[in-house]
Design a protein around this nucleic acid. Sequence first.
DNA 1: AATTCCATCAACCGCCGTAAT
DNA 2: TATTACGGCGGTTGATGGAAT
Length: 240
Amino acid sequence: MQNPQGLRKGAWTDEEDTLLRRFIEKYGEGKWDQVPLKAGLNRSGESCRLRWLNYLNPNIKRGEFQEDEADLIIKMHKLLGNRWSIIAGRVPGRTANDIKNYWNSHLSKKLQSSSKNTTPELQKVQVLHPQPRSVHSKTPWYWLVSSNHKQLQKQPSEEEQRDTLKHPEEQCMGIKDLISDEHDLNKKTNVTNAKLPPTNFSIRNTETLPSENTMRLDNDITWEDLLRIWDDGWMKTRRL
DNA sequence: AATTCCATCAACCGCCGTAAT
DNA sequence: TATTACGGCGGTTGATGGAAT
């Protein structure tokens, strides 16, 4: 099959895989629009990128999802919604596409059947918004988590404010801040041990000034605690 | 054995944000 | 500042294979 530009579409052949693999091994990833020409492939750059990222990359983990992986995906999906690429960033070896497919074919059904036994109040979707991306913004960076009218906001520390001019990607790593121990990340399952930075993380009423009515979290907090706080609904806030 | 149904997952499509010009 | 090109993302499609009839 070909598209109007005469480029091949559909399933990749072994020969095409070999050409792409050799090219990436020699020249590395990136400049995807130039890859087809240089690698001798009659494909779009986007098709090459997807084939590498979702299939050929040797770091991809094959086989069934383990229970701890599923557990992590469910927890992160509750926090982030369908932010598959961010979720994939916390599940080693799994691609966003893998996780999305796994969610749609397994987990969503599993949760649908189990949700019949839970209260509707706990089924609200929470979305994590990175805000803002601009390095010129007055507030350097923070995460905003909203669940209907509830919000959780991460204040930048002094050190983070000094680092404001870092690459924007580095400014938007909020979920990583929730999992502070690299050892836990490697074990994948221990998200329940996740800590919030004790001094610069606050939950507050955003209708007040930042310095007022701010509740400091000086102790470790579990995902369950975090979700309970949002579900309890004791914060009344507005979107910024 | 043939056909239909269903689940899975690789790949495509359209959109959006960012960088380059 | 406006336009264009590119890369990345999430939603969706469609090919495939196994199970059910």
